[in-house]
């Protein structure tokens, strides 16, 4: 009987320690979870801000202003446009080049322009 009492007392003490530990850990985890949730919502807001920023930066009027100022290209004329089917018809009719030319080193005109503006 005495042994049983001692054993159950020991068991109880063990449980108390275990529960205390678990509770402590839970609180820690809860704090961590709310911290994470907070940072997720912060990042979501940041993402929304970035998307808005991106949309602003790539808005057509901005791109057009930059293109007019920095590129030598012109808007496409109707004569320059053909449909995809026509394109392949023409491609099939074209003669393959007699011999393979040496590939020229690729020129990056737009890259050169960007370098020229000193933005990089």
């Amino acid at each position: 009987m005495r042994l049983l009492c001692l054993l159950s007392f020991g068991f109880l003490a063990g449980l108390i320690v275990l529960i205390y530990d678990m509770k402590y850990e839970t609180r820690q985890l809860q704090a961590r979870a709310s911290e994470l949730e907070r940072s997720i919502s912060l990042e979501t807001d940041n993402l929304a801000l970035m998307r808005t920023e991106w949309s602003h930066v790539t808005s057509p009027d901005r791109i057009e202003t930059l293109a007019v100022r920095l590129l030598d290209s012109e808007p496409a004329k109707p004569e320059q446009l053909i449909t995809k089917t026509d394109f392949f018809t023409l491609l099939a009719k074209m003669q393959p080049p007699a011999q393979k030319e040496e590939p020229k080193p690729r020129q990056d005109h737009i890259g050169a322009l960007i370098r020229g503006t000193g933005l990089q």
């Binding site: 109707p78 053909i82 449909t83 018809t89 023409l90 074209m94």
Partner: peptide, 24 residues
């Protein structure tokens, strides 16, 4: 219309001048 038609997928109607185009 000249600006938006290509964006909207409307192809210009032109007879393909095969001789001219083939010289590209």
């Amino acid at each position: 219309i000249r600006r938006i038609a290509p964006m909207l997928g409307i192809a210009p109607s032109q007879k393909i001048d095969e001789n001219r185009q083939a010289s590209y």
